[in-house]
Design a protein around this nucleic acid. Structure first.
Lengths: 195, 195
DNA sequence: AAAATAGATTGATCTTTGTCAAGCTTATTT
DNA sequence: AAATAAGCTTGACAAAGATCAATCTATTTT
């Protein structure tokens, strides 16, 4: 299973631990490779997010649709990220979010129960989870801080600095939505900031 | 040590596990009770956040100050929360935040090293950490979603619904800052929404 | 290649929010 | 009680951002 290598590398890198052959077999036994085509949904609003998926290839957006029919992108996910609405995934409650593939994707997916039963006992995995949890806390805090204290222009500049590959990989209207701006506003911001 | 009871209750409630007498002794041996007076700082921008503190009594704000000298409140913390800039606490890097007591406080504080060495091995504590990490992920996601897709008025209403005790406990100018609004704007929002 | 779709830009106008200044009310301090 | 400090409100104006409509590229799809 060739696409498992990315997952093994990722777990080992974040945890700082090595996976044994037996442990790798446990991963292979419980994660299912899945392909998702561009524009296909991984999760629909109102459904329970039964799976989380490790992204081997491709990209997706997590978004809501408001009463006016406008999309708001909460998250843009690429290779080596975990795809899910974690609120729904942990609690098995209906999700308020949609997750849609922006490119053809290859993921390795698994249910919450299987993670708890077979994967979490693997020390490298739970160590990875701890690191990931810290990283997420830090990133969420930073994004929130930007959101309450900076203008759209400053938030865009920060995104360009911190995640330049996002800027070139995704169309500008998605970036705008991720920043909480309309495409028109982001277009004007870019025009003015280049001066 | 009377004020440890709140911590024991909290750990047991979130973890769903019971603490033995010996485990409670470990907590008592490593957490230090500390009083912080109103307006006193728990953390100053530029310093490393060496301690995290469990809030037994009182409240605090976590904020930044921008170039114009304006405060932006990232977090309001009350009883049964952990006080810290976790980025700085985990990585031991200088913090970008200030944490200041809004009321006289009693906390139980501890360093990162002591948590890792003595407290984390207690099963109830690490189970609590997992639950807390999930809760934080969910709350952060919800707040971010509000921030990118809702108006100030909607964000305020959500806060009133979700955390009514915050509204009565803290002055309106702090609530405004927490929502990313100026005090004037929140004042007008409230005036209009009551109609 | 033509048609259709998706994305970006621009202008005009409207809405939301910020800024500055003043006056007012309510707590704290002395 | 007087004085001081915090906090809240209001008005006039400015700035940031949204909306709507039109046009202009690009990129897919047929």
């Amino acid at each position: 299973m060739d696409n498992f290598q990315a997952l093994f590398d990722y777990v080992q890198k974040l945890s700082g631990k090595t996976l044994s052959v037996e442990e790798k077999q446990i991963f292979i036994a419980h994660f299912k490779p899945k392909k998702i085509r561009k524009r296909q949904y991984f999760l629909q609003e109102g459904d329970v997010c039964k799976y989380t998926g490790f992204i081997v290839k491709g990209a997706a957006k997590t978004f809501t649709v408001d009463e006016k029919g406008h999309e708001h992108i909460l998250k843009l996910s690429i290779e080596n990220w975990w795809l899910a609405d974690f609120e729904s995934f942990y609690k098995l409650t209906p999700s308020r979010f949609n997750i849609e593939a922006l490119e053809d994707m290859e993921i390795l997916q698994i249910t919450h129960n299987l993670v708890e039963e077979f994967i979490k006992p693997i020390p490298a995995f739970s160590a990875m989870q701890n690191v990931l949890s810290q990283n997420n806390t830090i990133a969420a805090q930073k994004r929130m801080q930007s959101s309450i204290s900076q203008t759209g222009e400053e938030r865009f500049q920060e995104l360009v600095n911190d995640y330049p590959h996002f800027i070139q990989r995704f169309p500008q209207n998605l970036i705008a939505s991720y920043l909480g701006l309309t495409p028109e506003t982001l277009s004007r911001i870019r025009k003015n900031s280049s001066k």
